[in-house]
Each structure stands twice: as structure tokens, then as C-alpha cells.
């Protein structure tokens, strides 16, 4: 892990990984879509409307998964002062917020014909809405300081506090009587969903995860490049401010590599 603290080394690794995840995603996406939307049987009760599940469930899983990623990066950033972890958390946050939004919207679109309402204030929906606001709060706090490191650490603490929402989301369908159906895939006694539906769902989950990894790696690289530009500018203006007399002093080591 500490080897990755060197941004150049991370960049080399990321450059080797993201084309593959992107290619795998582009390969699996048509497979998953056709399987989910054409091949898989319609639900015996809900008909074809249930097919929105193949987008809704992967998006919702990704929403919680990305927050878990942020929590892990927050721990790494706070405990080991790992410079890459802060960048990684901040880069993941907009992606997570976007997928939380997708999960909420697809759920609402499905809920209108099935439940007869766009939205109900049950525990699952409310806790996911809270997750969405936690993402926004994390991003806002991260960017609220002139010193990016200060913002990164503060946001990391907030991310840890917000982690209490994750188990609430997971178990909300068991602790409360919710309109949202209980878990049907990740269960101790095996999935209760029909295998003809489970497999395309798992393919779609893989597609979403691969998309996240690709975009995340690119976002981290963008942020690292941005930081590098800032350091270069700062160094250049420092050099220009200095009078031309004397030999050029060695440039200060850049933390952003």
C-alpha cells in the first residue's frame, strides 16, 4: 500500500489497469443488457416492469459500496497519513453520489406503477436518501478549505461518522416493516431470487463495478495531475519572483510528484 504513496508509481499501475477494466465493461455491458432485458423471463407478477431491477440493484449496491470505499480510504488517510487515500476518497465521492441518485430515481420510477407512489418514507428509502446527503456533505466539506489537506482530513472524519448509515441501510428492511422488499440475493440461506434472473443481475453488477473502477482510477489521475499543475505553477511563480542574480537554487521537492 505504501508503495502507492508515490503518485508516479500509482499512475503507472493505474494506466495498466483501467484499459482492461474498461474493455471488460464494454464487453459485458451488451451481454448483461440483452440477457437482462430480452432473455431473462419477465416477473410473474410485475411483468416487464421488474426489469428495472437490473439497473436499480447494481446502482444501489454500488452506492453503498462506494461509500465503504470512502470509509476505508478515510481510515487509511487518517491512520497512515496516506496522501493517495485522501485523493482516492474525494475522487470516489461524486461517482457514489451519482449512483445513489440513480438508485433513488430508478426506485421511484419502479415504485410508481408497483406501489402506486413515487416515494414512501420507509426506512430503506430514507436511509439511502441520507446516504445521498452524506455524499454531498463529504464533497462540500472536502472543498470548503483553502488547504486541500485540511479539507481532506476533515472530510475523512465526517466519512467515518457517516459510516453508521451503512449498516442501517443494509438491515433497514429487516429491522423495520418496510415497503421495500427484503434482501433476496445476499442471504445466509442462499439467494431466493430465481437463477434465470440472478445471473443477468450478477453480470450487471459486474458491469457497474468495472465502470466504477475505470472512472475512479481516471478521476484519481485527474486529481493528481491537477495537483501537479498547481505545484508547477507555484514553483514557477516562486522562481519568477526571485531576482535573477546568483545561481539558480535547487527547486524544492514537490510532494505531488
Amino acid at each position: 500500500m505504501h508503495r502507492l504513496a508515490n503518485p508516479r508509481r500509482f499512475r503507472r499501475l493505474a494506466d495498466r489497469v483501467w484499459p482492461w477494466t474498461l474493455a471488460a465493461m464494454l464487453l459485458l455491458l451488451p451481454v448483461g443488457l440483452v440477457w437482462a432485458l430480452v432473455v431473462a423471463p419477465p416477473d410473474y407478477q410485475q411483468g416487464d416492469a421488474a426489469r428495472i431491477m437490473y439497473v436499480h440493484v447494481p446502482a444501489a449496491w454500488l452506492a453503498t459500496f462506494v461509500y465503504a470505499v470512502i470509509v476505508v480510504s478515510a481510515v487509511v488517510a487518517l491512520v497512515w497519513r496516506h496522501p493517495l487515500a485522501e485523493v482516492a476518497g474525494r475522487a470516489a465521492a461524486p461517482i457514489g453520489a451519482a449512483f445513489t441518485f440513480v438508485a433513488l430515481v430508478t426506485g421511484a420510477i419502479w415504485g410508481k406503477p408497483m406501489w402506486g407512489t413515487w416515494w414512501v418514507w420507509d426506512a430503506r428509502l430514507t436511509s439511502v436518501l441520507i446516504l445521498f446527503f452524506l455524499y454531498l456533505g463529504y464533497i462540500a466539506l472536502h472543498d470548503a478549505f483553502d488547504d486541500p489537506q485540511r479539507g481532506g482530513r476533515a472530510a475523512a472524519i465526517l466519512a467515518l461518522v457517516g459510516a453508521v448509515d451503512l449498516p442501517i441501510i443494509k438491515f433497514s428492511v429487516e429491522w423495520w416493516n418496510t415497503l421495500h422488499q427484503p434482501a433476496s440475493v445476499l442471504r445466509l440461506d442462499g439467494p431466493t431470487i430465481a437463477p434465470e434472473m440472478l445471473w443477468p443481475l450478477l453480470v450487471m453488477v459486474a458491469v457497474f463495478k468495472l465502470y466504477f473502477v475505470t472512472v475512479w482510477l481516471l478521476a484519481i489521475q485527474t486529481r493528481l495531475a491537477e495537483r501537479r499543475i498547481h505545484t508547477l505553477w507555484a514553483r514557477r511563480s516562486a522562481v519568477e519572483a526571485r531576482p535573477a542574480a546568483g545561481s539558480p537554487s535547487p527547486a524544492p521537492a514537490s510532494p505531488a510528484g
Binding site: L141, A144, F145, D146, R150, G151, A154, I157, V161
Partner: peptide, 10 residues
């Protein structure tokens, strides 16, 4: 927690 986190922000 929030008040402490926001110290010194703009």
C-alpha cells in the same frame, strides 16, 4: 463534530 470540522473553512 460538525462545528469542529468546519473551523477555519470559508
Amino acid at each position: 463534530i460538525g462545528a469542529a470540522l468546519m473551523l477555519g473553512s470559508r
